Simulated scan of single mutants.
Amino acid sequence: MEYHNRNMASSDLEDLCFHINTKISTIKKTLQLRNIGQEPSLKSMLCKIGHEMVLLHDLLNKMEMEVQQQEKLKNLLKELQKSAERDQNEAQHLRENIPSHLPKPTQSCITGLTVKCEEQTKAVEPERAKKPTKESRLIKEAALITTEEFQSVPAYMKGRLTYDQINAVVQDMNKAVVGKYKILHQPLKSMNGAVRNLYHRFLEEETKDTKGEFFIVEADIREFTQLKVDKRFHRILNILRHCQRVREVRGSRLVRYVIC
């Protein structure tokens, strides 16, 4: 036991001596370096080294700023990639769900009660062409909304409304327009009592602002279509006004939807 204690004491003493010697060696090296720094021949070299250290420090700062810029650019590219992926998914969805009709903005939707193409018009007898009857009068209808116009409608106006839902309302409004003006173009003598009442209502609803225009009111929509005149209908009307398909003329507590 005593031998073991002597060994431990000896080991601790050796470690202490090693530590002290290490410190002494470090002090000697420091003093040597300080003495070397005082030599005139080495001062210019130390100044150059100090200058290079300053330049190196500036270079490191520039590199750090560049790394930060690259990090920002990487984050922007990630956002751009996500946006491109969303656009690609939306384009793929549109490609897989192309509507059955894609009307062009310049497409004319003015149709006649008796639909006639250019070839049929040429085939009509000269006498009949010179004397058009009331049945052949043209009725102006609203053009269907194009996919481009649908995409341009603000999101707060569209909500969850779809392209097909909006055009379905356009078609129903056109049906009401055709139903109304077909009656107005009929000879008065050929009308029964119910149709005659509608005819007189149509005339009473005319104003100086609607002269020469084609318009309907909510009563016409209920009369000629199964469309519900509710909040959803009025939301779609806002979109149709935005797309310049209809405009409103108010008066006598009545809202008239004029076809543009």
Rank of each mutant, 00 (worst) to 15 (best):
Y3C: 04
H4D: 09
N5G: 04
S10N: 10
D12V: 15
L13M: 11
L13A: 15
E14G: 14
L16I: 15
H19Q: 11
N21T: 13
I24T: 15
S25V: 01
S25I: 01
T26L: 08
I27M: 03
I27V: 10
L31H: 02
R34P: 02
N35T: 15
I36F: 06
E39Y: 11
C47N: 07
K48P: 01
G50S: 08
V54E: 08
H57A: 15
D58N: 10
M63R: 12
E64I: 12
V67W: 07
Q69P: 02
Q70W: 01
K72W: 00
N75V: 12
L76R: 04
D87R: 12
N89L: 13
A91K: 09
H93N: 06
L94G: 01
R95E: 10
N97Y: 03
H101Y: 00
L102I: 00
P103R: 00
Q107K: 00
L113S: 06
T114D: 01
E118F: 10
E119Q: 12
Q120A: 13
T121K: 15
E125V: 12
E125H: 09
R128W: 09
K134H: 13
E135M: 12
S136T: 11
I139K: 03
T147W: 00
V153G: 06
A155I: 09
A155L: 07
R160Q: 07
L161R: 02
L161I: 11
Y163F: 14
I166M: 03
A168L: 08
Q171C: 14
D172F: 05
A176C: 08
K180G: 07
M191F: 04
N192W: 06
A194Q: 04
V195C: 04
N197W: 02
R201G: 04
K208H: 10
K211P: 03
K211C: 11
E213D: 15
E213Q: 14
F215P: 09
I216A: 13
V217H: 07
V217W: 05
D220P: 09
I221N: 05
E223V: 12
T225M: 05
Q226T: 15
L227D: 05
K228R: 12
F233T: 05
I236S: 01
N238F: 07
N238C: 09
H242Q: 10
R247Y: 05
R247C: 03
R247E: 01
V249Y: 00
R253N: 08
Y257M: 02
I259S: 01
I259V: 14
